[in-house]
Design a protein around this nucleic acid. Structure first.
Length: 578
DNA sequence: GCCGTTTTCGGCCCGACTGTTTTCAGTCG
């Protein structure tokens, strides 16, 4: 093939194959095996295509002989023969139909077999003709729901996910509203929001209540709630005005730890945890841990008790992705994760000199109020291209202004820096003499995203090898949910950064989280020192640092792995220029 | 289809809810 397939592309092919097998009526465990393999491929920090080429794909968990062979076929020929055969037999429209709520693979199969439905349009016609209710298991209610879904713009695509920052704003408001109610004893945000994932499919809120019915009632009347889908004693499901699904679950206070553990997930963490527990004769649910041998039912008020009963150290929510944390927890080998309070400075920020909203002094004061010891002002360089660039002359004057502000600060360093563009040939767009005047140089790619993987990798490695470049900003250029990473061989980027002592950034902007958790983990293990930067464009977005810290925690990083947990004097000694 | 601190074969997490059904399969999280 002309181009190496990305992990995300290989994973997508196996997710599709899983759905095809499902629609073909394969046993569920086979389907699950393909989905597990797809997840493993998607989350691999190294190129699975490269592993397959070396015959090493089976090293990934969930990938055996059969799937390894299919990966090789996909990488070499561009498709999987088994998938091609299934696609010839199974109409593409059936996959879309399975994305309609309430219509899973079994019911979709039935509709295809009995009514010959092959597309969303066929489905709509069948509902309008009242033919759906002629199929066993379907009734008037089913027709109503399908019609509502189609009218509501169901397009057969999976529901879009909400960026964590938006979900947290909504979720925290709802949690506060519930905590204020007299019936609530404990209320916590759970799910992917508590794990600080990049995006959320829905919001999960768990509660312990003296009077569950009263709390459910209060929940349905919170100002953020638009429409209640279902409700009962155990909780309720509702939609916010933004269309985000919110699940509230309520148990007695004695089981709150079980419930919080269950609804924090992830699904794969819980599945693996429960599978291991079953082998020890223990059954774990959202209500209790039950012992087969004694019949004892252990209700846990805290999550710590749940993990302790299972013979494990407490696992921080950010680690609960079934990426080795259960094994490490059993052996007592979990890392002591980085905390926000460990961060001592921020080395990527903007002012009104480029596209920021605040002055140097305002940014510096705001950073000091956050408890930091230093802030680097790193406005965009000469060719930023969006009308907000800083010419070399302007940068000289900016350096003088930064020195003045710095001189006026007590116990705080304001550092003169730049976020310089990495041009397509790998050079940066200020002269070395000027860069040498600066305390700190961030180099980032902002243009020409469409070049080949080899060209982009050469370009970034050249920037990394520049002796005056301290850190590569947002190394993949992705915008979560909006723009894919540009094509780049991160393995080579990481190798070059480790070799030259150039830092790699975790950009903490919640739209970026770049490096992501998977690659930050690979980079740190390869010996690259990681920096977490807010990339703030105003005083308030300095607070985005929390998203970067969360990404680092999800990457298993400790304070020692992250360079800006050090003082400025300690950190500057680690730079490529020494 | 994968995997192994009871297994290389025989298992593979757990429960709520829904609609359609007289006892449960399918779907969802």
């Amino acid at each position: 093939m002309a181009r190496t397939l990305k992990n995300s592309e290989i994973a997508a092919a196996f997710e599709e194959l899983a759905t095809l097998y499902e629609l073909d009526g394969a046993v569920v465990y086979r389907v699950v095996a393909y989905r597990t393999a797809a997840k493993s491929i998607r989350e691999s920090g190294v190129s699975v295509a490269d592993m397959a080429a070396k015959g090493a794909a089976q090293e990934l968990s969930g990938i055996g002989k059969t799937i390894a062979e299919k990966i090789t076929a996909l990488v070499e020929s561009g498709s999987i023969p088994a998938a091609d055969k299934l696609k010839a037999r199974i109409p593409a429209g059936l996959v879309q139909i399975t994305n309609i709520p309430g219509l899973g693979p079994k019911r979709t199969r039935l509709l295809h077999a009995q009514l010959g439905i092959e597309s969303l349009e066929d489905l709509r016609q069948a509902v309008e003709d009242q033919r759906l209710r002629t199929v066993p298991g379907f009734g008037a209610k089913a027709e109503e729901k399908v019609l509502a879904a189609l009218a509501g713009g169901a397009d057969g695509l999976p529901r879009t996910r909400t960026l964590l920052s938006s979900a947290l704003t909504l979720g925290e408001d709802l949690v506060e509203g519930l905590r204020a109610h007299e019936a609530s004893l404990r209320v916590e945000l759970a799910g992917s929001a508590r794990r600080w994932g990049e995006t959320c499919k829905d919001l999960d809120i768990v509660a312990a209540a003296a009077d569950p019915a009263a709390l459910v009632e209060a929940f349905t009347r919170l100002p953020g709630i638009d429409e209640v889908t279902t409700s009962g004693e155990a909780g309720a499901r509702a939609l916010t005005h933004q269309g985000l699904v919110v699940d509230l679950r309520i148990v007695g206070e004695e089981s709150f730890g079980n419930l919080l553990q269950h609804f924090t997930g992830s699904a794969s963490h819980n599945e693996a945890l429960r599978t291991k527990a079953v082998k020890r004769g223990l059954h774990v649910s959202e209500y209790a841990v039950t012992d087969d041998a004694t019949g004892d039912v252990h209700r846990c008020a805290t999550e710590e008790e749940v993990y302790e009963l299972l013979g494990m150290a407490y696992v921080e929510p950010e680690l609960r992705e079934n990426r080795g944390e259960l094994e490490a927890a059993r052996k007592g080998e979990l890392p002591e994760l980085l905390r926000l309070a460990d961060i001592r400075g921020d080395l990527h920020s903007h002012t009104t000199a480029s596209d920021g909203r605040n002055s140097i002094e305002q940014m510096a004061r705001a950073a000091q109020e956050r408890g930091y010891e230093y802030l680097a002002i790193t406005d965009h360089s000469a060719t930023h291209g969006f009308g907000n660039h800083v010419t070399p002359d302007e940068l000289m004057r900016q350096i003088e202004r930064i020195r003045e502000v710095d001189a006026g600060m007590e116990g705080f360093r304001v550092l003169a820096g730049t976020e310089t563009n990495v041009l397509p040939d790998g050079s940066v767009d200020y002269e070395d003499d000027l860069l040498g005047e600066l305390d700190w140089v961030v180099a980032s790619v902002h243009t020409s995203f469409g070049i080949t993987e080899e060209e982009m990798t050469d370009r970034m490695v050249a920037a990394i090898e520049h002796p005056l470049v301290d850190v590569i900003g947002h190394p993949t250029g992705r915008l979560i949910g909006r723009r894919e990473p540009y094509a780049v061989d991160l393995g080579r980027v990481i190798e070059a950064a480790a070799r030259t002592h150039t830092f790699l950034e975790i950009n903490a902007n919640p739209n970026r989280r770049d490096l992501d958790d998977v690659h930050a983990r690979v980079a740190a293990r390869a010996g690259v020192r990681i920096l977490i930067d807010s990339d703030a464009h105003g005083t308030e977005t300095l607070g985005n640092m929390g998203y970067g810290v969360a990404t680092a925690r999800r990457a298993w990083l400790s304070a020692a792995d992250v360079a800006n947990t050090r003082s400025w004097d300690e950190l500057r000694a680690l730079r490529p220029r020494g």
